[in-house]
Design a protein around this nucleic acid. Structure first.
Lengths: 342, 342
DNA sequence: TTGAAAGCGGTACCAA
DNA sequence: TTGGTACCGCTTTCAA
């Protein structure tokens, strides 16, 4: 019970060799040359097995200067969109022998800054950041970058570093064109974001699409709400209860659209006959909603993969010029949008 | 550019004191007694600010013997149910000054064992484990426990340690009673689990409820499928396409129920008039599905909180007798279940 | 009230 | 092919 964890020294003692030798064996080889005799190797391996020795990652990391840890900062663990990004990161990171240290900031500025700090203290090798408050956290991130932490920013380019961004603007326009083409004149927006920075691209495209179509931005058709499904549900209820309700609703992400769909059903509206609904991200379940949701696919997993790729590349080539990757989203038309009623 | 990260020694040099002194002020006080003069303290603080010093968590952990890290192992990051558990753990852990190291095993045995190993090497202070393969991973877990790692098992008690379990059996029975009471005689089961261990409790209760009602287990009403929404969708399609389709469907978790609901809608079936559907877990979005889903609420967040509480308690009292906590689930009746058709 | 120094568990250089 | 050992950055005892 309570046996002390064995160390290199314990193994060395048992095998009758030095700690250096054990270290060599554990790490396979040094600089590509196998320098330990097979006999010694076996003896050491035997000792490792006997003691069930597991190297201490902290010590190794401290001495070796690399933690083999990639930190990732996401805004909110309630939105599957972010998990999908994490999944992509994880896939690539594991392939390259890195593990992930995940931090959720729950859309609170102080939590975000805390998290960045904590990650930095853990001496992660690189950071993949999806900050909720890129402007306010900019300084912290800059400071890390100055310390030679490779940082990949996802979704914005507030600091001069490797980035992967999506082109949501263009696809928001395409979505608006789709809706306008279906004859919708009262297109509302359920704009539930945890921080202003997180939705600007969609908002701008919404406004300018409206303008180009000669339509005003009708603030009675816009609801700035919170980030939960319930928030989306309540927002849609408010919007749809008005004397002049919208005939189509953009929802800032698919998660909120779930609530919107239910609100519509509860008011006796059929989607898309009475109301068209469109989301963003194309989270996994978007295709399984009732009706399946028209949305803009972000390619979340690919975003994650790209981010990891950039981080890992940077780790091996600090002086490479800054890289910018754009993962182009894609309009996915499903059954939740249709011709304007009437 | 590329500035080396400052260490205690750098701060000490700048402030003209020893590293010990810096360590004292960084940690506030030693053993409750403030022993550093205010003047020195200020000088050190000044140096810390100037250099933007951040202690190295690895070194601290190595020397101090505690990583302030609680590891948590979950089967699958696609199921919100697990995230809700993580949320509960995080809440309590943070309160107590611990951070979380999260590992998803993607329902693969080798990934699970890898993850346990990795967590162990990182020298987490405690492990909260939701293993997908409790039997196969038992030995590994036992080995950790023997090394004095506090382990909290969630959802099963395959090793003798602190546990938190849910009483899904009883509530599955209650759910079956509800359905039987509504006149359903052909109750099917969409049984999509990543590993046998993950669903036994529900399965057993299903079988015995049927038996008690004098009904046979009709294997044509049971579909053992995968764990994704798509799997649930396909399973429901198969089940409903039969000549003698079920009139009610138990779905092993709410996530799969999403797919089931869509499959039903596509076949032109109205839920609950033509088909009753019930899930498990009561994930957040269950209440927002169309129709809102009857389910068994696991109280996921509470499970997480309890697990964290157990772990933290254990950290402070190694010799306490083993604790077992039961978080009682609760039947939540919503609109997806109703009287048997006909 | 402060400092010197011995480690925590590894890695890797230099010698043997 | 192997061993001795300095050191990674921090904590903590013991002395001053």
């Amino acid at each position: 019970m309570s046996a002390k964890r064995p160390t290199l020294a314990d193994v060395a003692r048992l095998a009758g060799v030095s700690t250096a030798t054990v270290s060599y064996v554990v790490n396979g080889q040094t600089h590509g040359k196998v320098i330990i005799s097979e006999e010694t190797r076996q003896r050491v391996l035997e000792g490792i097995k006997r003691l069930d020795y597991q190297p201490d990652a902290r010590a190794k990391s401290l001495r070796a200067g690399s933690s083999q840890l990639i930190g990732i900062l996401i805004p909110d663990m309630h939105n599957p969109h972010y998990w999908e990004i994490v999944e992509g990161v994880e896939e690539k990171a594991h392939q390259a022998g890195y593990e992930l240290l995940l931090s959720c900031t729950s859309l609170a500025l102080h939590r975000e800054q805390q998290a960045i700090d904590a990650l930095s203290r853990r001496r992660i090798d690189a950071l993949i950041a999806l900050p909720s408050f890129p402007e306010q956290s900019r300084e912290l991130l800059q400071a890390m970058a100055a310390r030679n932490y490779p940082i990949v920013m996802v979704g914005n380019d507030f600091i001069a570093t490797d980035t992967v961004v999506t082109g949501y603007e263009a696809q928001t326009r395409a979505l608006m064109a789709h809706l306008l083409g279906l004859g919708h004149l009262r297109i509302g927006f359920v704009f539930g974001v945890g921080s202003p920075a997180l939705g600007v691209n969609r908002w701008h495209a919404y406004v300018s699409s409206l303008a180009e179509a000669g339509l005003p931005v009708d603030e009675t058709l816009v609801d700035r709400c919170g980030v939960t499904i319930e928030d989306g549900y309540q927002a849609a209820r408010r919007l749809l209860a008005q004397p002049q309700p919208p005939t189509a609703l953009l929802v800032v992400n698919d998660l909120l659209a779930i609530g919107v769909l239910l609100a519509a059903a509860e008011q006796g509206l059929t989607v898309p006959d009475d109301l068209s609904v469109a989301g963003f991200d194309d989270i996994n379940l978007a295709a399984y909603l009732n009706p399946p949701l028209t949305t803009v696919r972000a390619h979340a997993k690919e975003i994650g993969r790209e981010a990891a790729r950039l981080a890992i590349t940077r780790l091996g080539a600090r002086t490479l010029p800054v890289q910018h990757v754009v993962v182009q989203p894609q309009l996915v038309l499903r059954a939740s949008t249709g011709p304007a009623p009437g």
